[in-house]
């Protein structure tokens, strides 16, 4: 299957096969009006299969979340049909409204308008803790 190259925009590549839709949702791409293509189970020399997202618009997207959900993705920035920048992602220091605190004693359990904030407390072991009650985030399904 061929998908036309994009002129100006972003390609999120090397997404673990099956995670493309989840990233689409977490990055809130449904709110954009530009052409977006999601490739599922695309053949990859590096991974066997992969997902890929192409966004055909020159937008400024906060991609910090990618480091938490799928740390091996690469981001290519395209300008005039050429890759002008290739980025890898790292674990974000802070996650806002990405994961929810499961501690029933946490203030976020009763004040639901509070942002769910988790901070990276142990980089080596990828440990995030709730900003408010310090409860460790459970490993997500992704």
């Amino acid at each position: 299957m061929n998908i036309d190259s994009i002129k100006n925009g972003m390609v999120i590549d090397h997404i673990t096969a099956g995670k493309g839709m989840e990233l689409y949702s977490l990055l809130k791409l449904d709110s954009l009006n530009c052409p977006i293509v999601i490739g599922k189970n695309v053949v990859s020399r590096k991974l066997g299969t992969k997902d890929i997202i192409k966004i055909d618009a020159d937008i400024d997207l906060n991609t910090d979340i990618l480091g938490y959900v799928d740390p091996d993705v690469t981001i290519n920035i395209i300008k005039d049909g050429k890759i002008i920048e290739k980025k890898t992602v790292s674990l974000p220091e802070k996650l806002v409204n990405v994961i929810e605190c499961k501690n029933p004693r946490c203030i976020t359990s009763c004040e639901q308008e509070l942002d769910q904030v988790f901070t990276l407390t142990d980089k080596e072991n990828r440990v995030y803790r709730c900003l408010y009650c310090e409860t460790k985030a459970k490993e997500q399904s992704h």
Partner: peptide, 26 residues
């Protein structure tokens, strides 16, 4: 406050110093 983190939330919104006098089991 019985809920953990409540004094932190207060300190993020108050314009005066907040002292945590005990938040749940935290």
């Amino acid at each position: 406050h019985p809920k953990e983190g409540a004094p932190l939330v207060a300190s993020m919104n108050a314009t005066i110093p907040v002292v945590n006098a005990g938040d749940g089991g935290h």
